[in-house]
């Protein structure tokens, strides 16, 4: 079980490493807004929040077992 959790977390790391990097960042790195906020700003904070949520889910789901 611990192994499974570890691999999930490893995959999370790899996916977000990709999301927080160029060229993905380059795709949103341009003028423009969404809901009145700059694209890059929204993107970075949204993905960040997503990362926190994913980790929280992986970590707490196990605790119930």
């Amino acid at each position: 079980m611990a192994d499974e959790r570890n691999s999930k977390l490893l995959i999370t790391f790899a996916v977000f490493l990709f999301l927080f990097n160029f060229p993905i960042i380059g795709m949103v790195d341009r003028q423009g807004t969404w809901l009145g906020m700059p694209l890059l700003f929204i993107y970075l904070f949204f993905v960040w929040l997503l990362l926190i949520a994913v980790v929280a889910v992986i970590v707490s789901r196990k605790n119930k077992n």
Binding site: R5, N6, L9, L10, T12, F13, F16, L17, F20, L40, F41, L44, W48, L51, I52, V55, I58, V59
Partner: peptide, 20 residues
């Protein structure tokens, strides 16, 4: 600009690996 965020995204990105 937003480049200062790297200082906080690095640790956040590492967080999943803390378990290990």
């Amino acid at each position: 600009g937003l480049s200062f965020l790297g200082v906080y995204l690095g640790p956040s990105l590492l967080a999943p690996l803390w378990y290990m």
